[in-house]
């Protein structure tokens, strides 16, 4: 019966351990504002979007078939997208096509921005009202979705890519999907 006297201590240790665990996760980049995607391993939503630059091709979800694709939702008004931009340019020829979706943006604004910073995208389309974004489960920009040759979403990067995220998450996944 005396053992019950240790119960508060045990509870305290359990709680303290749990809090320490959560703090450690946050230190490693987890954040309460991060919402895990439910779209992983589900087919990418159907969509057809018009190009940003007249005369270039648009993009439709049927074009996922047969190629690994990275769909990058971004906008010229999005500050974190700028830090990601240079990294995206370094991804040419890494085994996937890069589709840029300009999310809720002014065509003139994004054209001016890309003219200044360079255009890393193989295909660049506009999601003017954000409907396609909602169908992907986008809740902020930038967000990127890696889609396999069968058109299923296999990986999501929430927030801007970092060099570590590209090395550790994206490229290994791309290699796996290209096998």
């Amino acid at each position: 019966m005396r053992r019950i006297a240790f119960l508060p201590v045990v509870l305290f240790v359990v709680l303290a351990g749990f809090f320490a665990y959560r703090l450690l996760l946050i230190q490693r980049g987890d954040s309460p504002s991060f919402i895990p995607s439910v779209m992983i391993n589900k087919p990418a939503p159907d969509f057809t979007l018009p190009p940003v630059f007249a005369g270039t091709p648009g993009f439709s979800s049927t074009a996922f078939k047969g190629r690994v694709t990275l769909v990058n939702f971004f906008a010229s008004w999005c500050i974190p997208c700028r830090s990601e931009h240079a990294l995206l340019s370094s991804l040419k020829g890494k085994g996937f096509q890069l589709v840029g979706v300009d999310y809720k943006d002014q065509p003139e604004a994004v054209k001016a921005w890309l003219a200044r910073e360079g255009n890393p995208y193989d295909v660049l389309v506009a999601d003017e009202n954000g409907q396609t974004g909602i169908n992907f489960g986008v809740y902020g920009v930038p967000e990127s979705y890696l889609i396999d040759k069968q058109g299923r979403i296999r990986f999501k990067q929430t927030g801007p890519f970092t060099p570590e995220a590209i090395e550790k998450d994206l490229l290994p996944k791309v290699a796996e999907l290209n096998k």
């Binding site: 919402i35 895990p36 995607s37 439910v38 779209m39 909602i134 169908n135 992907f136 489960g137």
Partner: peptide, 8 residues
């Protein structure tokens, strides 16, 4: 919406 964003 749950299909796209989850139960959250």
């Amino acid at each position: 919406l749950v299909d796209r964003y989850g139960d959250y």
